[in-house]
Nucleic acid binder design. Structure first.
Lengths: 112, 112
DNA sequence: TTGACCGTCCAAGAATTTTCGAACTATCTT
DNA sequence: AAGATAGTTCGAAAATTCTTGGACGGTCAA
């Protein structure tokens, strides 16, 4: 039994505003974050069913490394959830304020 | 008497969250925005006295095109101020929330 | 165990952003 | 008018980021 996949996450205190804003500055990732807020923990593939897997990994890694999401391995899939409490502690109101200004559908995401 | 320099600004309704977040995702520009909040309208050169002028123009243009600042020519200088009301109307609380999470000095800016 | 799946890593190319010197225009001072 | 000053534009080079295919290793079902 191997330790499966392990993901590195920044400490709450290490979460940096510029990196977070950069991560959120992409419509695709912003839409992912909205889905996380609405659904709680999701299977990573739900965040971009039509994306090539390596592209999806790229974006989820960026969200993880910036401190926005927590990632854990679950069997062969990968479950992702927003670090709500950590983000709220570090940058109170940020996620809510940002999503408020980016209504659903604003980014022409996915399902036509 | 020539019309001097004219600057294009997006309408309030055209200000887009991803572009704004991208503009704010750079420590240098984030620091500029803080200075604008603290000082009101400033001479553009105050935003980066040590930067090459063309670099300064690049950053101020990006802030202007994203809808964050208003720029006007004043003689040979260029005065810049935050579009506080427009930003507050479009994305309530955003600037305050962001600057709150990016304390002064966080970006090692300028004066050593 | 075999085979299908899933996610990551690597590498390469495309696209974007950043930086800044040089040339140019406009403005102010004298 | 001449010289100094301010800002923009252009071009080029460096740095980042984005996208994707392909190889690889772990996981699940049969």
């Amino acid at each position: 039994m191997t330790p499966a996949r392990v993901y590195q996450h920044p400490e709450t205190s290490e979460i940096a505003m510029p990196k977070v804003l950069f991560a959120l500055s992409e419509p695709l990732r912003l839409t992912m974050v909205r889905m996380l807020v609405e659904r709680g923990e999701v299977d990573s593939i739900d965040l971009g069913p039509d994306l090539p897997r390596s592209t999806l990994t790229h974006h989820t890694s960026l969200l993880r490394e910036s401190g926005i999401v927590f990632v854990r391995a679950e069997g062969r899939k990968c479950m992702i959830r927003l670090r709500e409490d950590d983000l709220e502690a570090r940058f109170p109101g940020l996620i809510r304020t940002v999503l408020n200004g980016y209504p659903a559908g604003a980014g022409n995401e996915g399902d036509a």
